[in-house]
């Protein structure tokens, strides 16, 4: 049995919630690179990871979403790729302490292939470098997330597969009138089909326009692949009130949509922007997996 089959054998699995906002709540200044904290404030990063484990996450991610060479370069950290990624995995593993699995996060580079800002060769090299460091740090799987461009997701997937680890590949659906397309216009069916063909071990959707919008997206992913589905939606849409970002959706409202996601075929369920350990606890309770 593969790791993903083993995890999902007895029903849907609770994953984690947002990290950036949790780190900010622990003093990370807006605009500073969260991933850099793996080296400069590892104990705070570990607190976030541990909060998710204690809330019931059976899979936690790592604070390595922006830790590709191209994304780190924007923060002047382009020469720290290996250290930041390895430290990120080690922190999550310490926090998990055998109670949760550690899947390593890889996000987009922020560069577009279509405009010639980057090339497939460059992307392949930077994702391979990051994936290698994550594997060396001891990740049990790699999660490619928040991708807007299927072409970039495919390159990241191929690079991550080189490590021999299982790879989850998911994209953001937030464009078009029904908010059911990627930024580049791909449909859920197209994403599921192409990433399945490209060798993903699970596919899915994260971030986006809120959990309700991801129920039909999940159903459409289900219709186009046999792979387990990984779903981590936002807690609705943010509102800006007196200069502060506010997510009005409560953990209970979020968890209220979870049965619909399960019905639509989700195997891994967690949250993205606007979610917290309280959301994970509510999701775990709904799935009957309280810690």
């Amino acid at each position: 049995m593969t790791l993903l089959e083993e995890l999902t054998a007895s029903g849907p699995v609770v994953t984690d919630g947002a990290w950036g906002t949790e780190l900010q709540a622990r003093g990370l200044p807006p605009g500073e690179c969260p991933d850099g904290w793996n080296l400069t404030a590892p104990e705070r990063v570990e607190e976030v990871a541990r909060a998710y484990v204690e809330a019931g996450s059976r899979v936690i991610l790592t604070n390595t979403f922006r830790a590709s060479r191209l994304a780190l370069a924007g923060y002047g950290l382009g020469d720290q790729v290996a250290r930041i990624n390895q430290a990120g995995v080690e922190i999550s593993r310490r926090a998990a302490a055998g109670r949760a699995r550690v899947f390593a996060s890889m996000g987009p580079t922020g560069k577009l292939l279509l405009t010639g800002e980057t090339t497939e060769e460059e992307l392949r090299a930077v994702f391979s470098e990051q994936a290698r460091a994550l594997a060396e740090g001891g990740a049990e799987a790699i999660v490619i997330e928040t991708m807007s461009d299927l072409a970039e997701a495919r390159v990241a997937l191929a690079a991550a597969k080189e490590t021999g680890l299982p790879v989850v590949a998911c994209m953001v659906f937030d464009s078009g009138k029904n908010r059911d397309r990627t930024m580049m216009g791909a449909t859920p069916e197209q994403v599921a089909r192409e990433l399945t063909e490209a060798g993903a071990d699970a596919v899915g959707a994260n971030c986006g326009s809120g959990i309700e919008a991801y129920v039909p997206v999940c159903r459409r992913l289900r219709s186009a692949t046999h792979l387990p589905l990984w779903i981590k939606p936002n807690a609705g849409m943010p509102e800006l009130i007196e200069g502060r970002t506010v997510w009005r959706m409560t953990p209970e409202e979020f968890a209220g949509q979870v049965p619909a996601l399960v019905e639509a075929g989700a195997a891994f369920i967690g949250g993205c922007c606007g979610t917290s350990p309280a959301f994970v606890r509510a999701v775990a309770r709904t799935l009957g997996e309280e810690r």
């Binding site: 279509l114 078009g176 930024m183 580049m184 216009g185």
Partner: peptide
């Protein structure tokens, strides 16, 4: 009207 997405705009 969603005949075009970002790639077509860019081109």
């Amino acid at each position: 009207c969603e005949e075009y997405f970002v790639p077509e705009l860019l081109l």
